[in-house]
Design a protein around this nucleic acid. Structure first.
Lengths: 131, 131
DNA sequence: ATGGGTGCAAAGTGTTTGCAAGTAT
DNA sequence: ATACTTGCAAACACTTTGCACCCAT
């Protein structure tokens, strides 16, 4: 059985994610952590983000392009702007009943669902240069 | 202004997608089309899938790993098995009211949302060798 | 004839992995 | 001491692109 160890790298990585409210990518975390530890490698960042997500210390948001990481620990929905790529939390409650409905109607053992709203964020909409 | 042309390649590609009810990946389409046209290239398949999705002749399902293509033309939800990777349509109606709710509460110009249920499909569950 | 489409191969992204050396427990 | 973790670089998987030629309109 595997026990996860505490290392200065994984602490730096978790700290970096928790400092953010804007859903950084693995690469952004890597660049940030590297500011205080110029030896750390991308591999270490990816490996630790995986472990921290497994442990439930952070959430992984699966969006096209690159996965994002979220310091919030409760499952929730996201919005992504197709112009600037920003990812923001959606102000909706998780609809647990949908998981139950799908299970009952299909026998699929649903563990969770992910919902992502796509569109244009207010800032980009104001920008005029639409589409 | 760009006008899309009809070519034998894009006809073969659309046919291949429509022949499927199991959400093939671009590469599966490529391999299949190549059976009747051994000259076609992956680039052409990717380019045409993009165009066909833009035109609304097929739907793109964005799931981790590789995007899938769906002959159904109405927006709907999907389930993905984390064991075998199968993608299946979910038997739920699209919840239009959510798009409206998010717009009202955030000003985000929502165009649509995507929902993917994650879990274990009945076949894999029966397999015993879980997790 | 004209301008979008094609095949090919190379290049891009984002992510994973094998390995020898390092380190938390 | 043990066995998980790291840094490095190479390998991966999926997708996009530059270019010269082709072909639908």
């Amino acid at each position: 059985m595997i026990r996860y160890r505490t290392t200065k790298q994984n602490q730096l990585i978790l700290d970096a994610v928790q400092k953010h409210c804007d859903h950084p990518t693995a690469d952004q975390i890597y660049l940030e952590v590297r500011a205080s530890n110029d030896q750390i490698s991308r591999g270490t960042v990816y490996r630790n983000l995986d472990k921290l997500a497994d442990l439930g210390s952070l959430l992984r948001v699966k969006v096209p392009g690159a996965d994002r990481y979220d310091c919030r620990l409760d499952v929730h929905y996201h919005m992504i702007c197709r112009k600037c790529g920003a990812v923001v939390d959606a102000p909706l409650a998780y609809h647990h009943e949908l998981d139950q409905q799908v299970l009952e109607q299909t026998g699929f053992l649903v563990e969770r669902h992910r919902t992502v709203f796509e569109g244009i964020c207010p800032a980009c909409a104001a920008d005029g240069t639409q589409k």
